[in-house]
Amino acid sequence: MTTQLLSALIKKEFQLEFRQKSTLAGILVYIVATVFISSLCFNGKVDKITWNALFWVIFAFIAVNVSGKSFMQETKGKGLYNYLYYSPRNFILSKIIYNMLLMVVLSFLTFFFYSWFVYNKVDDMGMFLLSLFFSSTAFSGVLSLMSAIASKANNNISLMAILSFPVLMPLLLVSVKLSKHAIDGLAWSVSYKYLLILIMLNFVVVALATLLFNYLWKD
């Protein structure tokens, strides 16, 4: 029953997103434009560390833009409706899962454009994509909760950035480290512990978000 409700909620999120195609298209243009600007600025001369750092900065800003708006459309009336019909756990989980799916797709797209325009420096592609996947999911988890918090505090977009960036920093550093290893093509025995930390952080973030959303939910 709960899984049915959950999948219905996730479906609703997708339908809402695709009904308003302009938002999604806006994000795509945002990604391409950002990557293109950085390719122009670097003029094709980037070393590995800069390549990696720039990629993750772009990634972080895209994530904040994408997942950060997940509660922005929730008006007061809608909130009341949701409160009556869904459990908070299902509600936040649907948001998180939807954001995770969206962010994974978008981050892979970003990587595609980034390696096309700025060129690809990655040696161990499997490890890099894994790190990208789990970073996307963890980022979405954190940002969904932060968006819920910011939406309760008068929907302030700059507040969203202020709240999320310090909290995202541990995640970002692990991702940067892991992907640096992937770029250098280090052995998996060196980098597996970072991957484990990233996966563990995913669980921690989702568990905390579902637990804490109970208290944000009531108004």
């Binding site: 954190v142 918090i149 709240l163 909290v167 995640l171 921690v204």
Partner: peptide, 13 residues
């Protein structure tokens, strides 16, 4: 309530 939620989440991170 909201500050408490942020506090707990941020502390864990």
């Amino acid at each position: 309530r909201i500050a408490a939620v942020y506090n707990i989440f941020a502390f864990v991170m």
